[in-house]
Every structure is written in C-alpha cells, then in structure tokens.
Design a protein around this nucleic acid. Structure first.
Lengths: 229, 229
DNA sequence: CAACTGAATACTGTCGACAGTTTACAGTTG
DNA sequence: CAACTGTAAACTGTCGACAGTATTCAGTTG
C-alpha cells in the first residue's frame, strides 16, 4: 500500500493550529455520527471537552459551516446539517460528472503500483462480501473511491470531490443504509479497475459515472422505503 | 432582468451575523484587488476598519481559508492566496466538466424569460466590444456565466462552480489579463445561447465546455507572455 | 562595510468576562 | 386543565487583555 508521507515533527508543530485541530476533531465527531444529525452543537461543551476556550471552537465551526457540514442560526447556535433527498440529488448531479473525470484521468495516469493497490482493495471487498462484513465493506468502499480520486492527480478535483462526498456521508448518516446489497457494487468496481488496467479512458470514465448513478438510485430506493414508514 | 428577491428586514437582522458580514466584505476586498495577492492581512487593521474586535475577523478569515481565498501560517498571519499556473490548470480541469453540465442543464430547463435575459447580456457584450469597453465587457462576462450556472437549477452545482470561479479570479488578479481579444469570446457566447434556444442539450454542453477550454488556453498564453519578461 | 547579535516592536493565539438573546419552567388566570 | 405570562437559566456574540512568537532595526564586531 502507498505509505503516507512521513510528516516531520517540525511541520507538525508549525501547521497544527488549535482551530485546525479542533476542526478536524469535530468533523470526525460528525462523520462518525457521534454528533447526531440536526443536533445543536454546544460551544462551551466542546470547549471543555477539548480543553480550550470557545474562541478556537468558534473558528473551527465557521470553517465547518463553509464546508457545509454545519449550519448556524444567529443566537441559536450551530446545528449538524441534515441533507434532504433533493439536496443529495443535486450533489449526485455534480458527483457524477466528477466521477467520470476521475475515471478518465486515472486510466491515463495510474502507475502499475497504484493499479495493484486498487485491485487489492477490490479483492478485500470481495472478502468482506464473503463474510458478510458490511461495516468493513463500507470502509473499503470509501477507501477505494478515495484512492481513485487521489490517483487522478488533480488536487483541486480531489478537494472538490471530498467535499461533496462528506456531505453525502451526512445524508447516509440520516439512517438510510445503502439500500441494495453490496456484492452488486463490487462487480462494478472490478469493471472500473479493468478498464483502467486496459487504459481505456473513455470506458473507465463511463463506468465510474454509471457507478455513481447507480449509487444514487440505491439512495433513492432507500429513501423511498424510509419514507413509506 | 430577474429582480433579486426582496429580503425582508427581519431576515436581514436574523441572518447577518457580524462574522458573515465581515466575511463578505473581506471577500470583496480580495476580489476587487484592494488586498493585493500574496499580501499579509492584518487582523487588527481590519478590526479597526470594520469597528469590531478581532474575534469576528478571525472567524471570517477561517471561513475564507476554507474557501481557499486566503492561506494562513501559524504565528505569521493569513495571506491572500496566489494561484500558480499549475493550480489554475487543475481548476480549469474541474471547471470544464462543470461547464458542460451547466450547458446541458440550462438547455433543458431555461425558461423563455431566462433565455431572453441571456441574449440581452450577450447583446450588451457586443455593445461593450463596439466601444472597446474592456472593463464593462469583463463584468458582463462574469454576469453571463453567473446567470448560466444559476439557470442550471442546481444549488450545489452553483456553489461549487462559484467557488472555483472565485479562485480563478484570484489568478487573473495576479496581473495577467485575459490574453486574446474579447470579440472572439462573445461569438462563443452567442453560439452557446443559440444551442440553448434550440434546446440542444448535448451541443450546449459541448460548446460551453469548449468555451472554458479556450478560456484556459488564453490564460496559458497570457501566462507565457508574462513569464517571458 | 558586510555580517551578526540583541533588544524593542508588532502581531498572532488564546483566554476569561460581560452583555444580549433565546429557551425552559414555574406560576397564574380564564 | 389548557393557555398564557413572566422570570430564571443557559448559551451565544463580542470584547479587551495578556502571553508568546516573528520581525524589525539599531548597535556591534570582524
């Protein structure tokens, strides 16, 4: 697997401002569902929790607001954002075209090592499917797409993509699991990797876009089921 | 022209938090070039300028950092970001596919009124071309693309697009004007509007994407000229 | 005269406090 | 007993202050 670039202690001290740390921490809290969707976020509580004053917390929250993970109402506080189906739909619109671009670029640029890494993850997902380990599958799935966009070699594309993905994660946390089974999804992954291996840019792009479209369809299905209750 | 939805005074008081106001204000300062590229932004100075303490300023800067208009170094301050050609290139990569999507969607959804508005702006740009009013042309150009993305009817797409556009504006402020003449660009605009009027989604998408690509090419040309000196 | 060293200055990072607003709740009235 | 009202508590919005870190510049030395 690609080793993460070792951060020197120097960089660590220089870059890690308190607000940045808190920002990352709160983001994890939200993305892991420890702060429930729609819930109000208490500044003082977080401050004592992290052992800081409210200043850095507020700065972090302002950044999180900009990245749309929270929404804030004057004098009432900030709330973990809840994404409607309509909004998720809008996000998918954008994500689809980005995924297509990702597929094309990766097919152009992926090194043999990267390709092997992708294949390894797909294999792991097969293993997870075999043992019905849905949680593991989910994590691997995220990792797979994360690697893809990284291998596309465009930092801004990565940035944009991850922003949207985080927001979609927010939606998933609303309680609707990815409807359809997971084995289905992995055959799609494999097809994408194959197209990349064959350096078929157009096809890789198409497949990845379709994959996103199907993911969207699954979301709709799950939402419909949830709405029926 | 589409009238802006009148904001009730109630909403005005409710939504306008001090950091949000300051955020918008500083953004304008940057985008209008009053804060030079690469320049350090002085918190205290801004605070006295806006008549607030440094708290709200810092919150606004954290949001601006998230939207990549400024970059901050610990204990050294925040700086107006400078975009390299390579970065601008990355942004254009993403922008092109977004533009294609915009073109498709607008061709699908644009109302007759909206279409008329677009045509009006193109006509104005022609007028600006006739009088060699480059500044006016530039403003209209921004407006044109802004309207397009708005008419695509996808809030998240608009959001994403505008984020990238602002960053590119940052690049243009670095001193390189859009290289080629402007009349060229407007024939492209007209072609896009025609395709939209004909409800030819595929064509509108293609044209708008090509338009972005050409804009990128112009940028390269200008950058090359600037580098030669 | 250039390179270096040290103090003084300017600015950021963080905190605690206070004012103003919303929310929760107990008491009151029809 | 339900609806309403007023008060208390909780929390946000904002500020001023202090500590610690970069930067500047004058003085010094080779």
């Amino acid at each position: 697997m690609t080793p993460p670039p070792a951060p020197t202690p120097l960089q660590l001290v220089q870059s890690n401002s308190l607000p940045a740390l808190v920002h990352a921490e709160i983001e994890q809290l939200i993305l892991r569902g420890e702060l429930a969707i729609g819930q109000r976020v208490n500044e003082s509580e977080l401050a004592t929790r992290f052992g800081t004053s409210r200043g850095p917390i507020r700065e972090a929250l302002r950044a999180l607001e900009e990245s749309r993970l929270v929404r804030s109402e004057k004098h009432r506080g900030v709330f973990v954002r809840e994404i409607s189906v309509a909004e998720a739909d809008e996000i998918y619109d954008v994500r689809e075209v980005l995924d297509q671009l990702v597929g094309q670029r990766v097919a152009e640029r992926a090194t043999p090592t990267e390709l092997a890494d992708l294949e390894a993850v797909v294999a792991e997902m097969d293993a997870a499917t075999a043992t019905q380990d849905l949680k593991r599958y989910h994590a691997l799935n995220l990792k797979f797409h994360d690697m893809l966009v990284a291998f596309a070699g465009n930092a801004r594309l990565t940035e944009t993509y991850r922003l949207l993905t985080k927001e979609l994660l927010l939606f998933r946390l609303r309680g609707l699991q990815d409807g359809g089974g997971f084995a289905v999804s992995n055959t799609e992954h494999r097809a994408v990797v194959d197209a990349i291996a064959a350096r078929d840019c157009a096809r890789a792009g198409q497949l990845l876009r379709q994959h996103a479209a199907k993911s969207r369809a699954r979301m709709h299905k799950a939402a419909a089921v949830a709405a029926r209750k």
